[in-house]
């Protein structure tokens, strides 16, 4: 049936038209976070600042980043920490706007000592997560298992029950 065939041809043409019409797509490429410090498994000393170094990159424009530190206590270690009322589990949540500093297509180096671990932080296992967004809302994140300790350095903490 020729008519059917032509009809289908038209239809395919319509479908491809839509496909082409949609080529104008916005950026979905994620920003890249290269977190250099702290490293995975690092022990950070309570009461001091965090040596924080990373490089951020986006194909378009970087917008902002966020650092989130929260505890990774298991119920057991958590209960144990409750014995001393002097310390509180440390939580940190801060954002930095980098839109003004970032240039399109350039790598942005971030280095600062603005994150301070409170002196009353409960020692133990924590997560440090860095999130980064670009102007379109593309978001990436990296996570580190870290240990907060009074000792600092290489002290091995019980990360798991």
């Amino acid at each position: 049936m020729k008519t059917n065939f032509y009809f289908l041809l038209c239809l395919m043409a319509i479908v491809s038209f839509f496909a082409i019409a949609c080529e104008d797509e916005s950026d979905t490429t994620l920003p890249v976070i290269n977190l250099i410090e702290p490293e995975e498994g690092d022990t950070l000393q309570i009461g001091t600042d965090v040596h924080f170094t990373m490089k951020l990159f986006d194909n378009d424009m970087l917008k902002s980043y966020k650092v989130d530190i929260h505890n990774n206590f298991t119920p057991h270690t958590h209960a144990a920490s409750g014995e001393s009322t002097e310390t509180v589990p440390f939580a940190y949540n801060h954002t930095w706007d980098v839109a003004a500093k970032a240039k399109k297509g350039d790598t942005l180096s971030v280095h600062h000592h603005e994150i301070i671990i409170a002196g009353n932080a409960t020692p133990g296992a924590y997560h440090l997560v860095v999130y980064c967004t670009d102007v379109s809302g593309n978001e990436s994140h990296v996570a580190r298992n870290i240990v907060l300790s009074h000792e600092g350095g290489e002290h091995e903490e019980h990360a798991e029950d």
């Binding site: 902002s64 989130d68 954002t95 997560h127 999130y131």
Partner: peptide, 15 residues
């Protein structure tokens, strides 16, 4: 689910 570009204050969350 539209990403809003606004950071959440909740732990463990991005935008």
């Amino acid at each position: 689910l539209k990403p809003t570009g606004i950071w959440s204050a909740l732990p463990h969350a991005g935008q």
